[in-house]
Structures are given as C-alpha cells and as structure tokens.
Deep mutational scan, measured.
Amino acid sequence: ATNIVGKVKWYNSTKNFGFIEQDNGGKDVFVHKSAVDAAGLHSLEEGQDVIFDLEEKQGKAYAVNLRIK
C-alpha cells in the first residue's frame, strides 16, 4: 500500500523504532530508524502527521518512504 496517512503514536530514538497510527483505522505500523534516516529526519515526534508506504516482510508490516505531511 502507498501514500498512507497517519500520526506518530510514539518513537524511541534510543531504541531506534516506534509506531505510526494509521488514520484509516488499520493496525499500528512499525517504523525503524532506517526509514527515519532515509527521510532525512533525525527523529519523529509523538502526534506528528506523516505519509508512508507499507511493506511486509516475514508477515510483519512496516513503514517505508516516510515523509512529513
């Protein structure tokens, strides 16, 4: 899925991951530091509006192509 809109539920910059809540009511999506770095960001803030693509690997969904809304 592409261009999914959501809000950062939480992001832990020490542990380098967090979760994004989808605006469409879907399951929360894992986001890793690598996606944050690829977006040219240092971190994510709770409540921040983002747009992302959804990829699945080994049955787990995660956010890629992250951008600030």
Rank of each mutant, 00 (worst) to 15 (best):
residue 21 E to V: 08
residue 44 L to S: 01
residue 65 N to R: 12
residue 27 K to R: 14
residue 23 D to F: 10
residue 2 T to M: 09
residue 27 K to N: 07
residue 4 I to A: 09
residue 20 I to E: 00
residue 11 Y to C: 02
residue 39 A to N: 05
residue 36 V to R: 02
residue 54 L to I: 09
residue 11 Y to N: 01
residue 55 E to D: 11
residue 24 N to P: 11
residue 51 I to Y: 13
residue 64 V to W: 07
residue 44 L to D: 01
residue 64 V to L: 08
residue 35 A to M: 10
residue 27 K to I: 14
residue 51 I to H: 08
residue 45 E to D: 12
residue 53 D to H: 04
residue 23 D to H: 10
residue 24 N to A: 15
residue 8 V to R: 00
residue 53 D to P: 00
residue 60 K to D: 07
residue 50 V to K: 00
residue 69 K to H: 08
residue 65 N to E: 09
residue 64 V to A: 09
residue 24 N to H: 13
residue 50 V to G: 01
residue 3 N to R: 05
residue 34 S to D: 08
residue 39 A to S: 07
residue 26 G to P: 08
residue 5 V to T: 07
residue 32 H to W: 04
residue 15 K to H: 07
residue 25 G to W: 12
residue 33 K to M: 05
residue 19 F to C: 03
residue 58 Q to H: 07
residue 51 I to A: 09
residue 26 G to W: 15
residue 69 K to W: 03
residue 65 N to Q: 07
residue 23 D to Y: 12
residue 16 N to V: 03
residue 62 Y to D: 02
residue 41 L to N: 05
residue 60 K to T: 09
residue 7 K to M: 06
residue 1 A to C: 04
residue 20 I to M: 04
residue 4 I to Y: 06
residue 13 S to M: 10
residue 54 L to N: 06
residue 25 G to H: 12
residue 31 V to H: 00
residue 33 K to I: 05
residue 26 G to L: 14
residue 57 K to N: 15
residue 47 G to E: 06
residue 42 H to Q: 13
residue 33 K to L: 05
residue 42 H to L: 14
residue 33 K to Q: 13
residue 32 H to P: 04
residue 36 V to D: 01
residue 61 A to I: 14
residue 31 V to C: 04
residue 30 F to C: 03
residue 30 F to V: 03
residue 52 F to L: 03
residue 28 D to N: 07
residue 59 G to L: 08
residue 33 K to D: 02
residue 28 D to A: 10
residue 50 V to C: 04
residue 14 T to C: 06
residue 46 E to H: 15
residue 5 V to G: 11
residue 25 G to R: 12
residue 48 Q to D: 14
residue 67 R to F: 15
residue 44 L to G: 01
residue 65 N to I: 02
residue 51 I to Q: 09
residue 22 Q to F: 12
residue 1 A to F: 14
residue 14 T to N: 14
residue 48 Q to T: 12
residue 21 E to L: 15
residue 29 V to M: 04
residue 39 A to H: 03
residue 27 K to A: 14
residue 66 L to N: 00
residue 39 A to T: 08
residue 26 G to N: 14
residue 29 V to S: 05
residue 8 V to T: 03
residue 69 K to L: 08
residue 32 H to Y: 07
residue 42 H to T: 14
residue 18 G to A: 02
residue 66 L to T: 01
residue 9 K to M: 04
residue 57 K to E: 07
residue 50 V to H: 01
residue 41 L to H: 08
residue 12 N to M: 09
residue 9 K to H: 04
residue 42 H to G: 10
residue 12 N to A: 12
residue 14 T to S: 07
residue 49 D to F: 10
residue 3 N to G: 15
residue 19 F to H: 02
residue 18 G to I: 01
residue 54 L to M: 13
residue 31 V to S: 01
residue 65 N to Y: 08
residue 1 A to Y: 12
residue 59 G to V: 06
residue 58 Q to S: 09
residue 48 Q to W: 12
residue 61 A to P: 11
residue 1 A to L: 13
residue 43 S to I: 12
residue 49 D to R: 10
residue 60 K to P: 04
residue 20 I to D: 00
residue 1 A to M: 08
residue 32 H to E: 03
residue 11 Y to G: 01
residue 13 S to D: 10
residue 46 E to F: 15
residue 68 I to K: 12
residue 2 T to L: 14
residue 40 G to A: 15
residue 61 A to S: 07
residue 37 D to G: 13
residue 8 V to Q: 01
residue 58 Q to K: 12
residue 16 N to C: 05
residue 67 R to Y: 12
residue 41 L to E: 10
residue 15 K to G: 05
residue 13 S to Y: 07
residue 12 N to I: 07
residue 9 K to N: 02
residue 4 I to Q: 09
residue 7 K to N: 05
residue 47 G to Y: 07
residue 67 R to M: 12
residue 29 V to W: 06
residue 55 E to H: 09
residue 63 A to H: 00
residue 2 T to W: 09
residue 53 D to G: 04
residue 66 L to A: 01
residue 5 V to S: 07
residue 27 K to W: 11
residue 32 H to M: 05
residue 67 R to W: 07
residue 63 A to N: 00
residue 18 G to V: 01
residue 53 D to M: 04
residue 69 K to P: 03
residue 33 K to H: 10
residue 68 I to R: 10
residue 52 F to I: 04
residue 7 K to G: 02
residue 66 L to V: 09
residue 29 V to N: 02
residue 45 E to G: 14
residue 68 I to E: 10
residue 25 G to S: 13
residue 63 A to K: 00
residue 6 G to S: 02
residue 2 T to V: 15
residue 35 A to P: 01
residue 26 G to I: 10
residue 1 A to Q: 08
residue 51 I to E: 14
residue 28 D to K: 04
residue 38 A to T: 13
residue 38 A to Q: 07
residue 49 D to Q: 14
residue 47 G to T: 05
residue 51 I to G: 04
residue 50 V to A: 05
residue 50 V to N: 00
residue 13 S to A: 10
residue 44 L to C: 02
residue 50 V to M: 11
residue 4 I to S: 10
residue 13 S to K: 10
residue 62 Y to Q: 15
residue 27 K to Q: 08
residue 31 V to Y: 05
residue 50 V to D: 00
residue 58 Q to N: 09
residue 34 S to L: 15
residue 39 A to Y: 03
residue 8 V to S: 01
residue 23 D to T: 11
residue 49 D to A: 15
residue 64 V to R: 09
residue 47 G to F: 06
residue 36 V to P: 01
residue 54 L to T: 09
residue 29 V to Y: 07
residue 35 A to T: 11
residue 51 I to S: 07
residue 32 H to I: 03
residue 12 N to T: 07
residue 62 Y to E: 08
residue 21 E to K: 15
residue 67 R to Q: 08
residue 9 K to V: 05
residue 20 I to Q: 00
residue 10 W to Y: 08
residue 65 N to M: 07
residue 56 E to F: 12
residue 38 A to W: 07
residue 30 F to S: 02
residue 44 L to P: 03
residue 13 S to F: 15
residue 54 L to C: 04
residue 28 D to T: 05
residue 40 G to K: 12
residue 41 L to F: 15
residue 62 Y to H: 07
residue 54 L to V: 09
residue 54 L to F: 09
residue 7 K to Y: 06
residue 63 A to C: 04
residue 2 T to K: 10
residue 46 E to Q: 14
residue 37 D to F: 15
residue 19 F to V: 06
residue 26 G to D: 07
residue 26 G to Q: 07
residue 44 L to A: 02
residue 4 I to D: 02
residue 18 G to T: 01
residue 15 K to W: 14
residue 37 D to I: 15
residue 65 N to S: 06
residue 26 G to V: 12
residue 44 L to H: 01
residue 66 L to W: 00
residue 39 A to K: 05
residue 34 S to M: 10
residue 22 Q to R: 09
residue 37 D to E: 07
residue 64 V to P: 00
residue 50 V to S: 01
residue 4 I to L: 09
residue 15 K to E: 05
residue 65 N to H: 12
residue 67 R to A: 06
residue 15 K to P: 01
residue 17 F to G: 03
residue 19 F to N: 01
residue 4 I to R: 08
residue 20 I to C: 02
residue 43 S to K: 07
residue 64 V to Y: 06
residue 39 A to R: 03
residue 50 V to P: 00
residue 5 V to Y: 14
residue 3 N to S: 06
residue 42 H to N: 13
residue 2 T to C: 04
residue 16 N to S: 11
residue 56 E to I: 08
residue 56 E to V: 13
residue 53 D to S: 04
residue 27 K to Y: 15
residue 61 A to L: 15
residue 5 V to H: 15
residue 36 V to L: 11
residue 48 Q to Y: 08
residue 66 L to M: 06
residue 3 N to D: 13
residue 7 K to V: 06
residue 8 V to I: 14
residue 3 N to T: 05
residue 65 N to C: 04
residue 5 V to L: 11
residue 40 G to M: 10
residue 62 Y to L: 10
residue 14 T to H: 14
residue 30 F to Y: 08
residue 2 T to P: 15
residue 61 A to T: 11
residue 25 G to L: 09
residue 24 N to D: 07
residue 7 K to E: 03
residue 59 G to A: 15
residue 27 K to P: 13
residue 63 A to M: 02
residue 42 H to F: 08
residue 9 K to S: 05
residue 16 N to Q: 08
residue 34 S to F: 11
residue 3 N to W: 04
residue 68 I to S: 15
residue 22 Q to P: 09
residue 14 T to D: 10
residue 48 Q to V: 09
